[in-house]
Design a protein around this nucleic acid. Structure first.
Lengths: 260, 260
DNA sequence: GCCCATTTGTGCGTATGTATG
DNA sequence: GCATACATACGCACAAATGGG
């Protein structure tokens, strides 16, 4: 992010009656929202801003603090300020956004999803009690975590309600978080998730896909997701092999620490 | 609200490492939560606070601004600052209320907690990064699930902020859910919980207390709980031995079906 | 391990503007 | 108009975290 761009934006958002810290906040917000800056981009440091912009250090800090509060940027002493990953309406990935934490304890391991199959299942299945529909689209994925191990996911959704999952090209689904897909498709966020977890030896075919021995004790999770407050929207089963990595489950959109 | 009361509280909440504006925020928060002040009560004005308290005007304003952000107080120019009505949005057991599901799939197994020890730990521990306090009260419990197995819990909390856990009789703590205790003590709900989970062989003493073999692979969970949105309030470690029972983790207060 | 430059975080004191009664 | 009390803003000093040499 460029200082002079920011100066221009600041002038544009500075109007009588609006506090300077709000104007600066708006300027950065606009830069982020308009795509002028991308997630991970660096924001000029305080000193430089204070030198170039017609505002004092304290005011700059106050604007940036607000942006931190709203998770738009992240700041670290000695490092700088950076634009956060985009979160749609800050509502998107609220409950049970799960990721594995790396050695540093504050960053996530990268994930590489790979769709193994997509089909339509007519009969009843473990999802029926939750989804209450006669037919589901089932998407089976194997997700590589870092360069270390796989996680197995079976995802089931009512194709009548979310046609995207039946109709979208696989490459497209591959590249996107499913919660995000749902949010785009129906404009609503997942507000409630029930998670059932236990240790379990997975079925042989899943063990093979995870490339582990057939009697390995894994962590199995069943996910009952709801749209809004009580409207069942998808069902998911996840198998995780034994790993020293910790799985971070969030009840809020905030990351466990700094995430670049 | 009395200035000298506030001064006392501030001294109590001022500890090395915690910023003054947080200490002041905590002090007011405690006054509200403990019922020392009632909704509608007036907070002394900035000048008076700056005169009496060992903090500057800016710092006071920052603390009060935070309280306004969280709707604990309301401020109006020319009028003063006042304690808000308690907002009913403070629900009790929102995220990560965990229980084991029984055979029927819709009821929970009964739990029988038993306190093994309570002590005060001065040095650093696994909780320090989360709680940021030099001293914690640590409560170690063994919780019997149904008539089937045990779960091991280590709970750590800042005794300055939640004196209950140091002072209450053990029988009393024994009989109550800790989230409930916290809610009673400070009138606030746990709004955010970070959960870190993995498979792990527990330390030998814990294995013994769980009455399992020493090399048994268990599910270990670290819980970082926050009061309100971002205020660290307790740290907990939980070990669960292998069991066919599913652990139900709720992101909302609603039960998976009928729960007695 | 230690020192160092960089960058954010905290804190102080002060001045001035603005809404309220 | 006037006193009160909050709101914004400035400028400075020092502490604390981080990454690199």
């Amino acid at each position: 992010m460029n200082v002079s761009d920011l100066l221009q934006l600041l002038e544009r958002f500075s109007r009588p009656g609006v506090p300077k810290y709000v104007a600066l906040y708006d300027a950065v917000m606009h830069a982020v929202a308009s795509g002028l800056v991308a997630p991970g981009d660096r924001v000029p440091n305080e000193q430089e801003l204070a030198k170039v912009l017609p505002v004092s250090l304290g005011t700059i800090q106050r604007a940036l603090r607000r942006l931190v509060d709203e998770r738009v940027i992240q700041r670290r002493p000695g490092m700088g300020s950076f634009i956060s990953e985009r979160h749609a309406g800050a509502q998107m990935e609220r409950p049970f956004h799960c990721r594995f934490v790396d050695d540093s304890g504050v960053q996530y391991l990268p994930v590489f999803p790979e769709i193994l199959s997509r089909d339509t299942v007519a009969g009843p299945g473990p999802w029926t009690a939750h989804l209450r529909c006669v037919e589901v689209v089932r998407i089976i994925r194997r997700i590589r975590i870092g360069d270390e191990f796989y996680v197995h996911s079976t995802f089931a959704v009512d194709p009548v309600r979310l046609a995207v999952f039946r109709e979208a090209r696989l490459e497209q689904l591959d590249s996107e978080n499913f919660k995000q897909t749902i949010f785009r498709a129906c404009g609503q966020a997942i507000h409630k998730v029930d998670l059932f977890t236990r240790q379990e030896v997975p079925p042989p075919d899943i063990a093979r896909q995870l490339e582990i021995a057939e009697d390995t004790l894994c962590v199995a999770m069943r996910v009952h997701a709801f749209l809004g407050d009580s409207d069942p929207i998808y069902y998911q089963t996840i198998y995780t092999p034994p790993t020293p990595r910790e799985l971070h489950i969030v009840s809020d959109s905030r990351a466990p620490g700094f995430m670049p």
